[in-house]
Amino acid sequence: MPAQTQLLRNFFFTLFCLSLFSFSAQSQIGLGVYGGIESSKFSGETPDNVSFGSKTGFNLGIRFDLPLTEDVVLSFQPGYSQNGSSVTEKVEVESSYSWFTQTVKNTIEIDNQFISLPILVNIKMSRLFYATSGLAVDYLLSSEAIQENDSEDFKPFLVDGQISAVFGFGVNIPIKTTKLGIQLDYWQGLTRLSKETAEDGTELPRVRLSKYRLVLYWTLSVGGKE
């Protein structure tokens, strides 16, 4: 993992610990679970004959909401996510009739699995709605390139982790001592996901991962006063 990513991971861990210690005992912590779907896609440098397409995946995890003030909540949402991208290459091949060529599209599906730690700040807009933003560190567990029935390990071409900026909003519906909510957010990869060079020394294009996430969550309010 690059030193920059390692440094940020340590920063996030420290922030998490500090938040727990500085948390006011008068406030209620939200503890819960979430799950949802996401649509992700590579972006970045591509040759003229290559394009990236979306891939649908899912996510699930746990959620800690720590109120900092009446309107501001620090939300930790560690979880697992499966996402990726399709990579389509247009190739010109000679037709079997031999007097013309035809363009064939070869599509490879890249299937990634990540452990993510988003640290978000939720700002209450009204009683139900909130805006959210923050940073997320993703750790790549595995990556496969799948074409028709063949699959190949794609991880050697990718770095171990990436950092993303997160923007979104959500709806939070209180039900007795619990909260049910929906959050829609956009993750923009800030650091490159592709390595700079492959194992054989070939220079790799600069590629990032961005995604939209729709998450349904349920949290239980514990401790403090409402």
């Binding site: 440098e45 003229d48 600069r206």
Partner: peptide, 12 residues
């Protein structure tokens, strides 16, 4: 030869 270059730039 490429007549056009696509460049993707992301900045914080």
């Amino acid at each position: 030869p490429n007549i056009s270059d696509d460049i993707s730039v992301l900045q914080g």
